[in-house]
């Protein structure tokens, strides 16, 4: 006896068609395309590994920071202290208030080689570009006038109490004036600020800071070794005024 024709029954019990393969494929394709675009974007942005733009006084030709007091002769075996900061970062300002003077004094006397690495991610985070970048540019302009340390101090002193308020070009010029830049040098400084002269240097140093595995500010490195931001020493540097000398000794023996 032949089996009864079950095709009707089968069709009835067949689950309804779900999403078409085409739809699934197109969603997957969209996701893949975003991935490829991201990959191309990042690799392209990274390609420009060498730097060929202008260099402020105290800077390096490969844009890896700015030395404070570049004319000071270092004492033998002076350790290098790298400071990674963003002028908009309130915690950096805490470090500045607690230990800024001491750090500068050590740099001025040649006991340490102090290198600032200005970062700009907070303008991205706070959505107030170019506030961080013009402040960093201001420091480099001041460096040309030989007043980088003074500018660094003035800029942090003038950090807005409300985070995110940012800096205007007028603020940056004011900091230059407060740093003691006068006369013709002040004109040059103001022009440098207006022209955003070290724009490329700002971008490249920020990028290089990321390549140094710095992912937060402030980061303090003694002879290339970062102080962990969960350590006791880190908290002391931020919160205990005058703690820098002891921590420098502990970390470098100097």
């Amino acid at each position: 006896m032949p089996r009864p024709d079950a095709s009707q029954k089968l069709a009835d019990s067949k689950p309804k068609d779900g999403p078409s393969k085409g739809l699934i494929a197109s969603v997957v394709a969209v996701i893949l395309v975003i991935g490829v675009v991201a990959a191309v974007f990042v690799t392209q942005a990274n390609k420009s590994s060498s730097y060929s733009g202008g260099v402020p006084k105290g800077g390096t030709s490969d844009a890896t920071g700015l030395r404070a007091y570049p004319d000071v002769k270092l004492k033998a075996g002076a350790p290098t202290v790298d400071l990674y900061e963003d002028f908009q970062c309130p915690v950096c300002n805490q470090l500045e208030k607690s230990n800024g003077e001491q750090i500068l004094a050590k740099a001025k006397s040649g006991d340490i080689k102090l290198v600032w690495h200005l970062m700009t991610f907070l303008q991205d985070n706070l959505q107030n570009a170019p506030a961080s970048a013009i402040a960093a540019n201001g420091l480099y302009c001041a460096a040309d006038a030989g007043k980088a340390a003074e500018y660094h101090k003035a800029n942090f002193a003038g950090q807005p109490t409300k985070e995110g308020a940012g800096y205007s070009v007028a603020d940056i010029k004011k900091f230059g004036k407060e740093a003691g830049i006068t006369g013709g040098a002040l004109d040059t400084f103001n022009k440098c600020v207006d022209d955003d002269k070290y724009k490329d240097y700002v971008a490249k140093t920020a990028e290089n800071a990321g390549k140094d595995d710095v992912t937060s500010t402030p980061t303090v490195k003694f002879n290339g070794k970062a102080v962990s931001n969960t350590s006791q020493e880190y908290n002391q540097l931020l919160q205990q005024p005058g703690s820098f000398d002891a921590i420098l000794k502990q970390k470098t023996g100097k």
Partner: peptide, 17 residues
């Protein structure tokens, strides 16, 4: 023991942990 936080938003002297 890595702290993912730029340390920038916990002002008022309180550090993230």
């Amino acid at each position: 023991g890595i702290l993912i936080e730029c340390g920038c938003f916990g002002s008022s002297g309180k550090l993230p942990t």
